[in-house]
């Protein structure tokens, strides 16, 4: 538990991460992810409760915990005036690694994150992706037992994101490193995590294996796009087939009680009600559905694919209107 004055930032957080797994910690900004990670990484003292990392209590044995964890921080906090090599040297010194071993290790890590050529340059000249990769190398310098990745890909381009994911998988599979990953991207958690926990308003609202969590949500979601003026009528029709689910703006979502077989009935009923159907899409339950079902709202950034514009522009009013005129 963590209290800031009267505000309890994180309270109902109970989690157990197994050795050797990748654990995804999901939630919107301000949900308490960072506070939890800061406590687990000994940056913040818990005001109550107990947290054991790599076998040691963070409150009573922070020094032992520190030796066993590696942390890649949000925004890759590095001194832009120093070079990659200098930062790796610093990391080795801070973690008491002897010089010859540190040299070897640094060379190996630079090779693996593809920064060998840039290691002599000041970090200030690095791109965002290079900084994150260096950050990862720094976190791995002392071969940590538990690796914390706090929003490792926020702000990265898709290519850099894929490279980082690959690296995390390698670490976990080949070296057996336990990984705790926080992210606001559901896809990231889905791709990487063996198990996930969803945090909302300082509480863990779901925890488990992604596949099982999705199955628990059950019914697949049917997304339909209709003209704005017919939205309310359509909603009345859809209620008959299952729960209305929160979706991205401009679409209606219904959890089909009868599964995919129900689609034909839905189409017929909408037609009978005189509702023009622009598009429809059937989504098997995703982590977003798990999230929506658990918290009652959709996760920021996890937009339905149905109305995601091809060019990457946000769905605008104009775009919808044009659709309506067809």
């Amino acid at each position: 538990m963590r209290r800031f004055g009267d505000i309890v930032a994180v309270d109902g957080v109970d989690l157990a991460v197994q050795e050797g797994e990748i654990f995804g910690f999901l939630g919107p900004n301000g949900a308490g992810k960072s506070t939890t990670v800061r406590m687990l990484t000994t940056l913040l003292r818990p005001t109550g409760g107990r947290a054991v990392v790599a076998g040691f209590d963070v409150a009573t044995h922070p020094a032992e915990v520190r030796k066993r964890i590696g942390v890649a921080l949000q925004d890759a906090a590095i001194d832009p005036l120093m070079t990659g090599n200098e930062l790796l040297d610093l990391q080795a010194v801070l973690y008491g690694i002897d010089r010859s071993r540190a040299r070897l290790r640094a060379g190996e890590l630079l090779e693996r994150v593809g920064l060998t050529a840039a290691a002599h340059r000041r970090v200030g000249t690095y791109s965002g992706g290079m900084r994150r990769r260096l950050d990862l190398a720094l976190a791995l310098m002392h071969e940590p037992v538990v690796l914390f990745l706090d929003e490792p890909t926020t702000g990265l381009d898709p290519m850099s994101r894929l490279t980082l994911w690959e690296e995390v998988r390698y670490l976990n599979k080949e070296l057996g490193t336990t990984v705790l990953l926080t992210t606001q991207y559901l896809e990231e958690a889905d791709q990487l995590a063996d198990r996930i926990a969803i945090i909302d308003n300082g509480r863990i609202v779901r925890e488990g294996i992604p596949r099982e969590l999705k199955a628990q949500v059950g019914a697949p979601t049917l997304l339909v796009a209709v003209p704005d003026e017919q939205r309310e009528r359509a909603r009345e029709v859809l209620v008959a087939f299952g729960d209305i689910r929160p979706t991205a703006e401009g679409t209606l979502g219904v959890g089909l009680r009868d599964g995919a077989e129900g689609i034909a009935m839905v189409v017929r009923s909408l037609d009978q009600a005189g509702i023009r159907l622009h598009r429809m899409e059937l989504n098997e339950p995703s982590l977003d559905d798990v999230f929506a079902e658990a918290t009652g709202h959709s996760l920021e950034g996890a937009r339905s694919r149905l109305l995601e514009p091809a060019a990457g522009a946000p769905p605008t009013k104009g775009r919808r209107r044009r659709g309506g005129r067809k």
Binding site: P46, G55, E143, V145
Partner: peptide, 19 residues
């Protein structure tokens, strides 16, 4: 809050650094 992450192992190369 309760949290338990990973087990203690004699893995890794970190030690108490010299001040």
């Amino acid at each position: 809050m309760t949290a338990a992450l990973g087990e203690d192992r004699t893995y890794g190369v970190a030690s108490d650094p010299r001040t």
